[in-house]
Design a binder for these strands. Sequence first.
DNA 1: CATGAATGAGCCTTCATTCAT
DNA 2: AATGAATGAAGGCTCATTCAT
Lengths: 190, 190, 190, 190
Amino acid sequence: MRHKDDSKREAITNAAIELITTAGFADTSMSKIAKAANVSPATIYVYFENKEDLLNQLYLMVKREFSEAMLAGFHDSLSVEAGFKLIWENSCRYMLAQPTRFAFSEQFANSPLVNRVSREEGSGYYQPVFSVFERGKREGIFKDISLDLSIAFFYAPLMLLVKQHYSGDIVFDRELQQIVFEITWDALTI
Amino acid sequence: MRHKDDSKREAITNAAIELITTAGFADTSMSKIAKAANVSPATIYVYFENKEDLLNQLYLMVKREFSEAMLAGFHDSLSVEAGFKLIWENSCRYMLAQPTRFAFSEQFANSPLVNRVSREEGSGYYQPVFSVFERGKREGIFKDISLDLSIAFFYAPLMLLVKQHYSGDIVFDRELQQIVFEITWDALTI
Amino acid sequence: MRHKDDSKREAITNAAIELITTAGFADTSMSKIAKAANVSPATIYVYFENKEDLLNQLYLMVKREFSEAMLAGFHDSLSVEAGFKLIWENSCRYMLAQPTRFAFSEQFANSPLVNRVSREEGSGYYQPVFSVFERGKREGIFKDISLDLSIAFFYAPLMLLVKQHYSGDIVFDRELQQIVFEITWDALTI
Amino acid sequence: MRHKDDSKREAITNAAIELITTAGFADTSMSKIAKAANVSPATIYVYFENKEDLLNQLYLMVKREFSEAMLAGFHDSLSVEAGFKLIWENSCRYMLAQPTRFAFSEQFANSPLVNRVSREEGSGYYQPVFSVFERGKREGIFKDISLDLSIAFFYAPLMLLVKQHYSGDIVFDRELQQIVFEITWDALTI
DNA sequence: CATGAATGAGCCTTCATTCAT
DNA sequence: AATGAATGAAGGCTCATTCAT
């Protein structure tokens, strides 16, 4: 009996993310993925149940990668300020370093193709971020607003700017990043 | 000779927006649109070149509607504060009143299916908003940051919260709106 | 607008019956049918909902053709003997003249692929045969047995022999037909 | 070296007959058979050349089982009447007791998937039945008709009625069996 | 202008079979 | 002998678009 070949699985996921990001999910056929991964179309079905399952697994993979990058170097002994800045900069750096992953993630942020289960599992990765905000509120540093609001002002402008960076509308360099971080801090702190 | 029938055109666009918003662009076939609009598939091609052209025209239509709603009651004699608040509230009200339009707009905000031309024409509608920000900077009310940054903090959190409102994660009522407006003001003013 | 083309529908049904009879339903692909009918695969779906619907419509068509042939020249004023013989001979003649239709009919006599509705509509065509048996019983000519039994002895041996004729095991000529008819008569009459 | 494992072979054949009878040959994949038999798909190919070979071996197996049941208790010293009745009742009893085997047998009675060789080998099992008919003719009990005709009137109505019994159209109980036997006897005897 | 018929291309998926262990 | 991985071929069906009226 042959063993399952991890390199095949990886070739498939890489090809899939690349193609889906470029052309969209609907215009990325299983055949095209197979061809790009140097594999038979049928082989994809050895590793994934169907096209939707493939997408959901990719989504979780990308989300996990992102959350890991975002939390690199983070631990609870950090001060709120330090932790907040670390997470913001990790996020920013990763988004700028991984155009494909970022674009993929954006594309399915609100897609009905990603099922509830995957989405919930995906959002579970952000737990540590939530705690920083809670601590910041308790310590009287942050405004006393709901978590959802905090997240909205923390991530939404950043992500929009990264998108504009990729579309060539702006150059999101270190200097600009610093400014954005300061506005964000301004917005959320008392 | 009969002229092109505006009621037919409208039936098609309405059906298309509704279906595309609900099921996604790829899963909305021209036949389904035709059926929903009580029209033959071939008739769609009398009014639109092809599926992509249809999408681009829908996109522009929705963008224009939104910009009109957003600028209702606005004129240059308003103070920066008044104009800023008017535009923010108009935007917020419209997004909450027009779920379908809003969802449609979001769906294609970053889609490669909407071509550069349409996107640029669409963003042209926002000129008056830009001037308010410029005036605010000149008058020393707003921070001296680029337009893109201003827009990012003005719209991105708002839109994210509206999305969460529609997905049922939060209730974006008047009280919350007031808070969000204040944070936004905080973020952008000196 | 083009009109639906009856010659296309007919080409499809003929090709389908021919192929299905020869190779079986499962081994007859829609593409093969299309090719044999000189038509695009998609065209079949203009006339039939799907492969199963095609089969059911073919089944009904063949059943109706058979029942019409079987009842040719029949009317109620005929005596039981005359009517019985007419129907038997019509049946026999048609089965031997239409190998393809006969084989097709046999193939789906007990197939779950033909749905209940089609089957019931199909068996409705045999009403006049049933009345002859009823009359025969009332007039004291036939044994007092249920309709199902009568039908079983009337048709089953005949059909088996026709099959053997086609498979080359026997030659079902006029002489043999006469003998079979007599045995059948013997079996059913008092 | 291990020997081929008879219990595996049996598991495969049982699973295959069950599945094929229920779902049809075309809709029974080798994988499904393998799964039902708790075996790898590749293992089936240790025992059978390919799917068609599997079918032919199943066909022969079922035919042999049926002929054995049909001839249980039969020996040449029985009178024609006794032998005839024994075979008829054995056949009837077996068909009613073994729905799956009966259905399987019927399904491939006229299928092009069973090859000529298997079919001929299968029909060889009926030799003793043939001799009874021959003796009956020689002894002046049966009509002087060909073997094929005798078989046709002996089996065809019976099998049709069993099918109707299974489909729920009739209840083929002892009483009805007795009647059918009598009609059969009537039909075949002088 | 308006339309239903017609279509070739392509999609997702399954399958019988072979491979490599 | 036994097996799970791997695969090329094929299947049913849908679609955006064009045709012919």
